[in-house]
Design a protein around this nucleic acid. Structure first.
Lengths: 103, 103
DNA sequence: ACAATAAGTCAGAAAATTATGACTACTAAT
DNA sequence: ATTAGTAGTCATAATTTTCTGACTTATTGT
């Protein structure tokens, strides 16, 4: 018995990879806050209620690896790091807007 | 010590709920196939390589609960079920298109 | 040299998601 | 009444993701 229907595997869905990049437990919030202002690790930890260092660190690194965020070292008073939205990151804004409009 | 930054909890991110609806392991594929034709349970199981009954059943039910899919009983030869994209479901098509274009 | 601040890392625990295989429910045809 | 086909459910197991708390690294100011 055969079907003539398309058989897909988990990697052939083009939207899925991107969706996966955005769907960690805290990534949507990270993204949303990044749209408003550059992010700092320690304040993210406070701002996102219930989050934790480890998961945030991994999420930030992943968002950086795919070039949605850029990690910038600020050599000042207390040295710190800022995560900025890249141009690629900004290209997601309309997608999020559209998602929100379907609420 | 206080900050004046916005503090968010996991429910206040409007895009996140929707994102979550779309990000089960198989939901993007389910959605993508539903755009092409009505879905039947048993052929979905074959079409989506590596998937399983339980998870597909739950995913279909959830997509139905939020009205992205409609479950229709077809009383015919071998009685069966068809899952159809609703109008609300169709409104996601441009979102997916946009996601794909960022690949 | 020493303390303070920021930004993490690491190993192990806990929680959430997904998978497996046996079993059930409904209908239609024989 | 029995069988066959479709669409599931259920309990449990395996896997993946997230969380916790202790520890590390780097830089600046005293």
């Amino acid at each position: 018995m055969t079907t003539n229907k398309e058989i897909v595997d988990n990697e052939t869905c083009p939207a899925q990879a991107l969706l996966k990049l955005l769907s960690g437990k805290w990534k949507p919030e990270i993204f949303r806050l990044a749209v408003e202002a550059p992010l700092r690790f320690s304040s993210l930890l406070h701002q996102i209620e219930g989050s934790n260092k480890q998961t945030l660190a991994v999420a930030l690194r992943e968002l950086e690896e795919v070039s949605f965020l850029e990690r910038i070292v600020i050599k000042q008073k207390p040295l710190h790091i800022e995560y900025h939205l890249t141009e690629k990151g900004k290209s997601l804004i309309p997608v999020f807007k559209q998602l929100e409009s379907l609420g």
